[in-house]
Design a protein around this nucleic acid. Structure first.
Length: 331
DNA sequence: GAGGCGTGGGG
DNA sequence: TCCCCAAGCCT
C-alpha cells in the first residue's frame, strides 16, 4: 500500500482540481433523470441502481416510475409474488436482478425496519448489491462521502488522470483513485498518524454532498461526453485538465476484450423461455416451452433446467411450468 | 479471475 | 444485416 507518486502521470498544465470544474458543470448540465429529482427516496435510488446495471438509461425510466408507484416501499414489493416482480421487470434484461431485488426488499423489510441501510458494508451484504451499487446508494441516496466507481468513472479516470485511452479491467486500486478526486478529503479517525493527510486537507472542508455530486459528475461525463467510442473532447469541460489529451490521445495498447457472443447461446434460449412464461397468464405446458426453441431440444432442456436452478421458473406437480410463486403457495 | 447472465437501440 | 454495446453481480 505504498504512496506511489505515479511516474506515468503527465505534468499538469493546470492545477485546478477536477472537482472544481466537474461539479459546477454537472449542476448546469446534468440530465433530468427521474431518480435524481428531489424527493426520490433511498428505495427509489436503490431500485434505479439495480435497473441500471447493464441496462441503458432510456429503457429504465418508465419501468422505474411504474415500479415505485406500485411498490413505494421495500415491504410492499417484499409481499408480492416473485411472478409479479418478474412481469413488472419485463424486458429490462438479466431477470435474476429482479429476483435479487425481491430478496433484498424482503431483507430490508424484515431486518431493517423497511429502511434502506446507509452503511456500505450492510448494503453490500444484500442480494444483488455489490461494490458499485452499495456505494451509489450510500452516496446518492444518503449523501455519504464514498467513492462510486462504475465503468464510466473508470474510463474517465483512466483518461483524465492516467492518460490512457480506456479503462482496463476493474482493479482494487480504482476506489482509491476516485477517493483522491473527491472534494473535501478529510482526516479520518483512523488517520491520526498520517501527517500528510492533514496537510492535504483544505481549510474549509466541502460538504459530503459535494463528494456525492462529484461521483455523479464523473459518471455523467463518462456517459454523455467521455464515452467509450468517439469521445466528444471538443465539448468536454475538463479537456484542459485531461492527461490523455495532453499526451496526444495515445491509442489503447492493452489486451482487446473478447466480444460478447449472443446468437444461439444459452442466454438467448433462456430469454426466449422466460418470455413465454411472462407473456402467459398462468402456468404453461412443457409443449408450449418446447415451441419456444425448436432448434436444439437438448439446449432447450438444459436452459430450462438452469432457469429452475436459478429460481426463475418453477415446475408444478402436474408437470407444467410457471413463474415462481405464480400458482400460489398451495399449488 | 474469467465466464455467464437479457435486451433492444444505434452505428 | 451485423456488430457493439449499457450505471454489475455472482460463482
Amino acid at each position: 500500500m505504498g504512496t506511489t507518486t505515479s511516474a506515468a502521470a503527465a505534468p499538469a498544465a493546470d492545477d485546478t482540481p477536477l472537482a472544481d470544474v466537474l461539479v459546477p458543470w454537472f449542476r448546469a448540465h446534468a440530465r433530468d433523470l427521474p431518480w435524481r429529482r428531489p424527493g426520490t427516496t433511498p428505495w427509489g435510488v436503490l431500485v434505479s441502481e439495480i435497473m441500471l446495471q447493464q441496462t441503458p438509461v432510456a429503457r429504465v425510466e418508465e419501468p422505474w416510475r411504474a415500479w415505485l408507484e406500485r411498490w413505494p416501499r421495500p415491504s410492499a414489493m417484499a409481499a408480492a409474488p416473485a411472478a409479479d416482480v418478474l412481469r413488472a421487470w419485463g424486458k429490462l434484461g438479466y431477470p435474476r436482478r429482479a429476483l435479487r431485488l425481491h430478496a433484498a426488499a424482503q431483507a430490508i423489510a424484515a431486518d431493517h425496519d423497511d429502511v434502506v441501510p446507509t452503511d456500505v458494508d450492510t448494503l453490500e451484504s444484500l442480494p444483488g448489491i455489490g461494490t458499485y451499487t452499495a456505494r451509489a446508494v450510500a452516496a446518492f441516496a444518503h449523501g455519504q462521502r464514498v467513492p462510486v466507481v462504475d465503468t464510466n468513472v473508470r474510463r474517465v479516470v483512466a483518461r483524465a488522470v492516467h492518460g490512457r485511452a480506456g479503462a482496463g479491467p476493474a482493479a482494487s486500486r480504482d476506489l482509491a483513485d476516485v477517493e483522491a478526486l473527491l472534494p473535501g478529503a478529510r482526516v479520518t479517525s483512523a488517520a491520526s498518524d498520517a501527517a500528510d493527510v492533514t496537510l492535504a486537507a483544505p481549510l474549509a472542508a466541502p460538504r459530503d454532498e459535494d463528494a456525492a455530486t462529484m461521483s455523479a459528475a464523473l459518471m455523467e461525463l463518462g456517459a454523455t461526453v467521455c464515452v467509450a467510442r468517439g469521445p466528444r473532447c471538443g465539448g468536454c469541460p475538463v479537456v484542459r485538465l485531461c492527461a490523455w489529451q495532453r499526451l496526444g490521445r495515445p491509442a489503447w495498447d492493452g489486451p482487446v476484450p473478447k466480444a460478447q457472443t449472443w446468437a444461439g447461446t444459452d442466454r438467448q434460449v433462456r430469454g426466449r423461455l422466460l418470455d413465454v412464461l411472462r407473456g402467459a397468464p398462468g402456468p404453461v405446458t412443457a409443449e408450449a416451452l418446447e415451441k419456444a426453441w425448436l432448434t436444439d431440444p437438448a439446449q432447450r432442456s438444459r436452459c430450462l433446467d438452469s432457469l429452475l436452478v436459478d429460481g426463475l421458473v418453477e415446475q408444478l406437480a402436474d408437470g407444467r411450468f410457471a413463474l415462481p410463486g405464480e400458482a400460489g403457495d398451495v399449488g
